[in-house]
Design a protein around this nucleic acid. Structure first.
Lengths: 170, 170
DNA sequence: GCATATAGTTCTGAAATAGAACTGTCAAAC
DNA sequence: GTTTGACAGTTCTATTTCAGAACTATATGC
């Protein structure tokens, strides 16, 4: 599969994965949320090769997730800061961190705690229904095709299949 | 970086990324939540090469995210179903879908809608604070080191740096 | 016996990544 | 006025991973 195609698929998850679904990109975004802004900062924090870092930053800028802002003129230097579209990735980041906190910690406990400024307490993120406010679990959710669905509505699975494609039995 | 190392890092996000942070794994998990259970089902829905699919399924089983259950005896056949640890990935999946619904849809609208069985309405997932119930945004959250922190507590950034490592200026 | 279904494994060429060195600009230090 | 160092990249080669296709194996149904 060419990963370019992912962004064309009638599935919001596939499209999102096409944008942020690789290891380095996710780690770069973690750094962004930890207030890293500059090339050297990312590079030394992550140990990523400079080549890949340059490429990933460009892609994130192209996607409108980061904005490249000059912070000095001679020599020209830029910072990478999250746009609103980038800031909106926060629930994804928190969900990832929380799963790790739940299932991947060693005996020593969590590496990082999160404090909510509004209420002052250390918290966990909880995902709730926008309509009734109840916490969500997979089993309580039923999916059905929306206006942007295509060809395999029950699942919104990709329509382009490479190898011995069949229609899904759903 | 050897991706094996990710799982050792004092950062829940890095550890989680080490487990599920690649494109195919995320897409396989999407299929799991859409009730796909069998090798051929994953393969034809995703168009992934059989080789990679076998490898990724093995890894997910090793990680305790999927369980491999026999469903017939001759020939031996197995299904892959989500464990509780796997089901707990649901908020990550929903957060990814929701970001895509917000930022990656075309003019036709969302490919897939989600209905909450409890309240019967189509909904969006909202991430709230476990303590006060208010919706969360990046700016309202302050991070600080927990018991499992190490070496660069303010950020929980990796301690192993490969290239010209420096300490972070935070 | 032959085709089909399922669940893989094996092989080769293509693509992505790692690791290191190099370029270029400017400021400050010597 | 030349050297050093910070910063932000680019270029190069070797290694690793992935894609695409073919092959193996077991059993059922015709």
């Amino acid at each position: 599969m060419k990963w370019k195609e992912l962004e064309e698929e009638p599935c919001s998850m596939a499209r999102t994965i096409g944008v942020i679904g690789d290891r380095w990109t996710l780690l770069i975004l973690r750094e962004c949320f930890l207030r890293t802004r500059r090339f050297e900062g990312f590079q030394s924090a992550l140990g990523i090769t400079r080549h890949l870092l340059a490429e990933r930053l460009k892609k994130l800028v192209r996607q409108g997730i980061l904005r490249r802002i000059p912070y000095q003129d001679s020599p020209k230097r830029h910072e990478y800061i999250l746009t609103q579209k980038g800031l909106d990735l926060y629930p994804i980041m928190m969900a990832i961190v929380h799963w790790g906190d739940t299932h991947m910690v060693d005996e020593r406990g969590r590496p990082l705690l999160h404090q909510h400024r509004k209420c002052g307490k250390d918290f966990d993120p909880v995902m709730v229904c926008s309509e009734c406010g109840e916490p969500l679990s997979a089993k309580e959710v039923h999916t059905h095709p929306g206006p942007g669905a295509r060809s395999t509505p029950a699942t919104a699975a990709p329509e382009v299949r490479k190898t011995k494609a069949r229609s899904r039995a759903a």
